[in-house]
């Protein structure tokens, strides 16, 4: 290696402090998370501040352009676009968190088990991963949603989670595989710790930054898949989502009528959330991976 300027092994606390030190100075990370945070707060607080009016209620004259009264204008039915927008943001974050969370959980279980145990279990799980990986996710979700009439945010998130974990499981497996043969894991094994404990105490903490970044990418992916499903017409029937807004806008000729305020905000918000997450992820990578820290 390079003259690995011999120092004592860094304390975990020191490592965390150092990571934080670089995190707050990383422009990509700060910008990315700031954008996500602003949109998240809009989604969380917006509906409260706007009162209890349901987002799909007809509240004003149709097709009004943006004004002080209706920030994002109104739809062809006279619904307030901004009200729909803040409720839609909420749905988007919920689906992202749920789908991304479930996918991350499955990916971790499969990845840890396959990578740590190896052997037949690894073979079987890798095969399963590859099979699910090849199947086009959206097509499966179409069939499932259409037949079972899934129209709730929670169930939608669940099924997205169930189908979008494979690439993450592969990544976790590869990481686990490389950690498995490290000294400290051997030591833990020799000292008689069980498999579950070794994974929980020795392996997972050593790749926590990696797992977090995986979750971020899964979150972004879930948001995009959910918006596609909603757009095809398999979105929630109760309430509103950003994808559903896009669907309504195109279905009711917002394009031809020039109601740009109807279809620009929801798409821009999805792009902003997912893009900001991706950029923040690059920032995180730079923070946790000292090799990339060439400022």
């Amino acid at each position: 290696m390079t003259a690995a300027l011999t120092e004592t092994r860094p304390e975990p606390r020191a490592v965390r402090r150092e990571a934080l030190h670089f995190a707050v100075r990383n422009g990509k990370l700060v910008t990315g998370f700031a954008v996500v945070l602003v949109l998240l707060l809009t989604g969380l607080l917006g509906p409260l501040l706007l009162g209890s009016a349901p987002p799909n209620e007809y509240v004003a004259a149709p097709m009004l352009p943006p004004s002080a009264e209706h920030w994002f204008g109104t739809t062809t039915f006279g619904q307030d676009v901004f009200t729909q927008f803040v409720h839609g943001l909420r749905t988007t974050f919920a689906v992202g968190a749920l789908g991304g969370g479930i996918a991350a959980l499955i990916a971790m279980v499969v990845g840890f088990a396959a990578g740590y145990r190896g052997g037949l279990l690894d073979e079987a799980l890798t095969m399963l991963t590859n099979v699910i990986l090849v199947i086009p996710t959206l097509a499966v979700l179409l069939i499932v949603n259409a037949y079972l009439g899934i129209r709730g945010v929670a169930v939608q998130g669940l099924f997205i989670g169930l189908t979008s974990w494979p690439w993450a499981a592969r990544a976790v497996r590869a990481q686990t595989f490389s950690l498995r043969t490290r000294d400290f894991v051997d030591l833990a094994r020799l000292s008689g710790l069980g498999t579950g404990r070794i994974i929980a105490r020795e392996i997972a903490p050593n790749m926590s930054s990696y797992l977090f970044m995986t979750f971020i990418l899964l979150f972004g992916g879930s948001v995009l898949i959910a918006s596609s499903l909603d757009f095809i017409g398999l979105g929630p029937t109760e309430g509103v989502s950003l994808g559903l807004m896009l669907q309504n806008a195109t279905q009711w000729s917002a394009l031809q009528l020039g109601l740009w305020w109807w279809f620009v905000p929801p798409g821009a918000a999805i792009t902003a959330v997912v893009g900001a997450l991706y950029v923040a992820n690059v920032g995180l990578d730079e923070v946790f991976n000292p090799k990339l820290r060439t400022t």
């Binding site: 596609s228 994808g243 896009l246 279809f263 798409g267 821009a268 999805i270 792009t271 991706y278």
Partner: peptide
């Protein structure tokens, strides 16, 4: 990053 984060249908609509 912006392009890859864009939902396909939204860019199409735009």
């Amino acid at each position: 990053y912006v392009l890859t984060a864009t939902p396909y249908m939204w860019l199409a609509v735009i």
